[in-house]
Nucleic acid binder design. Structure first.
Lengths: 226, 226
DNA sequence: GCGCGGGTCAAACGAACGTTTGATTTCGAC
DNA sequence: GTCGAAATCAAACGTTCGTTTGACCCGCGC
C-alpha cells in the first residue's frame, strides 16, 4: 500500500517524475496562476498520472509550495551575495555606491534575461499579489531580508546616511527594479531597452542616496559618525 | 422573452441589482482574484439570482470587465487632473518640482486611505499581474497616459531635463508609488507610516530629477533650450 | 522463485463551477 | 382590469476540477 500517502512527501530527490512535475508546475503556475492551472494540465505535460501529485506532494497546494520553495532560497542568496560582494572591497575609491547599485541591480534583473527566468519572476510576482501561501510569506522570505541587507550596505558606502533613510532608499531602489520586472514580463520593451532602464535606475537611486546623505550630514554636524 | 440575452448588455444604468452586482464583484474580485471568485458567491452577497450576471453582463468576464471599467476612467482622470493642477500655476517660485510631485503622489495613494479604496487598488494590481482582459489593457488605459503626462510635467518644471530622462524619472516615481500600494495592501505598515514614506518618495524623486536635469544641462550647454 | 514495497496507472467519485432554460413576478401604460 | 416587457427566480445541464481508489509493473533482497 502506497507508503507516502501521508501529508509529508515521500523522498527528497532522485525521482525523475518528481523533478519533471516541479519544472512543469513552475512554468504553468507562472503563466496562468494557481487557480487557472489544473493538475491534469501539469501532469499531462510532465508525462505522468494525475495521482503523482498527491503521491509526491500531498495535494495541489503542496506542489505549488514545493515549486516556489525550490527556487526561493537560491534567488535570495544570489541577491544577498551580490550585496556582500559589492561591499567587500570597499576600501578603494569613492564610487562604492555606484558599484554597489550596479552590481545588485544586475543580479536582481538577471533572471529576466535568461530563458525561463522571466517566468520565475512572474511566479513570484503572482504569489506576491495573489498569495496562495501565508500572506507576507514572500515579504518575509525575500523582500525584507534583501531590503534590509541593501539598506545596511547603502549606509556603509554613504557616509552620513542614517538607518531610516537607508531603509527608505533601499525600498525605493527595489521598487524600481520590481517595476522593471513587471514591464519586462508584459513584453513591454525589448531586452535591449532593459539595460538602458537599469542604467537610469542606478543613476537615479545613486543621486537620491547622495542627496539624502548630504541632507543628513547637514543636520548632523559633519565629522560626527552615526 | 428576456430581451437582453444578446451579448450586449441591456440597459446602462438605473437597475438596482446591476449596481449591487458591480459593488460586490469589485470587492470579491479584489479580495480573491478572478478565478477564485465564483458567480454564486457574488450573487449571494448581492442578494440576487445567479442568472442576473448573464442577464446584465453576458457572462462572468463581462461582469469583471464592467467592474474594472466603472472605476478606471475616474482614477485616471483624477491623476491627470492632479498633474494639470500642479503645473498650471507654474509662474511662481522655483519649487514647482516639489509641489508637482507632492500633489501627484497624494492623489495617487489617496484611494488607499479611503474605506474600500485599498481593495480598488488591489483589483487593479491583480489585473496588472494576472490579466484576464487583453494583456496591456491597464498599461494602455492608465499606466502609459499617466506616466506620459507626468513626464511632460517633469520636463516643464525642470529646465534642462530631456524628454527621455523625464520619461525614465516618471517611471521611477510611479514605480515607487505602486510599491507603496503593494505594501499597504498587505497590511504592511500602519496608515500613519504611509505619509512618512510618501514624503521620502517625493524627496527621493525630486533629488533624482534635479540631478538628471543638471547632468543634461552639463552635456547640453546652458541656455540652450531643448 | 518469491515476496515486498516503491512507483505508476486508468478509472471513478463527489463537489463546484459557469451557463442556460423556462416559468413566475413585478409594474407602468393604456 | 389587462397586457407586455423587464426583471427575477428555482432548477437543471454539462463540464471541469481535485482527490481517491485499487490494481498493475518492476527491481531488489532473500
Amino acid at each position: 500500500m502506497t507508503a507516502p500517502r501521508a501529508p509529508s512527501p515521500p523522498t527528497g530527490a532522485g525521482d525523475a517524475a518528481r523533478e519533471r512535475l516541479l519544472d512543469v508546475a513552475e512554468r504553468q503556475f507562472a503563466e496562468r496562476g494557481f487557480a487557472e492551472t489544473s493538475i491534469r494540465s501539469i501532469t499531462t505535460d510532465a508525462g505522468c498520472n494525475v495521482s503523482a501529485v498527491s503521491y509526491y506532494f500531498g495535494n495541489k497546494l503542496g506542489l505549488y509550495t514545493a515549486a516556489i520553495r525550490r527556487r526561493l532560497d537560491g534567488i535570495r542568496e544570489q541577491r544577498l551575495l551580490a550585496i556582500r560582494e559589492a561591499t567587500a572591497d570597499l576600501d578603494e575609491t569613492a564610487d562604492g555606491l555606484d558599484r554597489l547599485l550596479r552590481h545588485f541591480s544586475g543580479v536582481f534583473v538577471a533572471p529576466l534575461l535568461d530563458e525561463g527566468g522571466a517566468q520565475l519572476m512572474s511566479l513570484f510576482l503572482r504569489e506576491f499579489v495573489t498569495p496562495q501561501l501565508d500572506p507576507g510569506f514572500l515579504i518575509d522570505e525575500i523582500l525584507e531580508p534583501v531590503e534590509r541587507a541593501l539598506a545596511e550596505a547603502l549606509a556603509k558606502v554613504s557616509p552620513g546616511l542614517g538607518p531610516i533613510d537607508a531603509r527608505l532608499c533601499a525600498m525605493s531602489h527595489v521598487a524600481q527594479l520590481g517595476h522593471v520586472c513587471h514591464l519586462r514580463e508584459g513584453n513591454q520593451g525589448a531586452a535591449g531597452v532593459i539595460d538602458a532602464v537599469i542604467d537610469h535606475v542606478v543613476r537615479f537611486t545613486a543621486d537620491g542616496v547622495r542627496a539624502a546623505a548630504a541632507r543628513s550630514a547637514r543636520v548632523t554636524p559633519a565629522g560626527e559618525v552615526s
